[in-house]
Write a protein that binds this DNA or RNA. Structure first.
Lengths: 223, 223
DNA sequence: ACCTGAACACCGTTCAAGT
DNA sequence: ACCTGAACACCGTTCAAGT
């Protein structure tokens, strides 16, 4: 209702790590992992490719910062008040949704285990373990198992997205793989053939959370 | 004791997919992932880089074939007579050892979930589930969880190896990361700080198998 | 049918030169 | 201090030309 005064548009032309990372995320989201090059990024920011190196050490740092930004946003959105088990499930499903929305995050997370995004996830998954009654000595293994599982699925999911540029949807992709599974040698691959139809019809998110529950059940069993 | 006759060295000069994959594995093992280029491979095989494309579609296929070869060898070495749980543990530790010996396998496995090596692992891990008493409807999720976990760890392990060219050993690397963890903000990272010393002192293989047991316990609990 | 190796179309990164 | 953009040192892949 109020007529806003002509804003004296603050110039944001100056390069900064934030602007660079933001532009990188934009390119990754809209055009995919392969599209992020320093040349494309420089064009997007209307600068020279060398300028980026003034603010960012190299491409690894750029990708790590981009993944860190996405994950940090997801983790801060998780309510703290929930019980420990719900809290861990919330972290896991938050991470899943982030990777679903930004498949390149899945690729990046599996590239450097010591990067900030991983440490954040490790903390968020590990902290509730004490309240869950897991003995001190078992918490490190338990948190590592959860994080490894999450990263494994993240990697597979990202690989799928890397294959499908945009056209095919995931269910068509799964149907193709399932079809291939049914044609495997019956003597060598009885199990794979048997579950091929389940591959075709399953829901990724549900299956991911089923795995988290499996691990949580295992953790509870040890306790 | 017996004096072997002068062997009439069979000429194996002709290129073939096997020879190419064998040479690729050799380069990957001795010089690391980055060293495998078509130029290096061609030099190793004393041919032109274009010749390789007559036998192999592209680099993805080459890497998949290399990983497939390593994994197939590991899986056939596993005794069938063991109980279902021991069988799954044997597959997991076999895969771990293969990735430990050839870290590039870890990278490759996480790149294409539909590749032959993954299907082999999926089969080897899924087949014993029936004998374990897991209901038909739960076997797909259980096998997927085990494979995702394995791939997650494989990726992390490979990333570590990618970082350390050759000099530093893994324990020094873990000590460095652990040291960084102890310097994190106490309010935001209480858990990570608490387990930092465990990171430094833990055994990767033991922790990996602890995770497998955790998942197997979870699977047993559901049953 | 299979091999050769120059050429093409890219990369990430560096660095002298500018402002 | 920060930016420019050509240049460097690579890649994977293609393809005309050979045998």
């Amino acid at each position: 209702m109020a007529i806003r005064p002509q804003r004296t548009e603050r110039r944001t032309d100056a390069l900064s790590k934030e602007r660079i990372v933001g532009a990188a995320i934009e390119i990754l989201d809209t055009d995919g992992e392969k599209a992020l090059t320093f040349r494309a990024l420089a064009a997007h920011l209307e600068t020279g490719s060398g300028a980026i190196y003034w603010h960012v050490a190299n491409k690894d740092e750029l990708l790590a910062a981009a993944a860190d930004g996405v994950i940090a946003r997801v983790l801060t959105a998780i309510p703290e008040e929930a019980g420990p088990r719900e809290s861990i499930r919330a972290v896991a499903s938050g991470a899943f949704d982030a990777i679903d929305a930004h498949p390149w995050v899945g690729t990046q997370l599996t590239r450097e285990p010591w990067q900030s995004a991983i440490v954040q996830i490790f903390e968020a998954v590990g902290r509730p373990l004490r309240a869950l009654g897991v003995p001190e000595g078992a918490q490190f293994d338990a948190a590592s198992a959860l994080v490894s599982y999450l990263l494994g699925l993240a990697g597979q999911y990202a690989a799928g997205a890397r294959l499908l540029p945009r056209e095919t949807d995931r269910s068509a992709f799964l149907a193709t793989v399932a079809e291939r599974w049914t044609q495997l040698d019956a003597a060598r691959y009885p199990f794979v053939r048997r579950v091929a139809t389940q591959l075709r019809d399953h829901d990724d998110r549900e299956q991911f959370l089923a795995g988290v529950d499996l691990i949580l059940d295992g953790i509870a069993a040890v306790r």
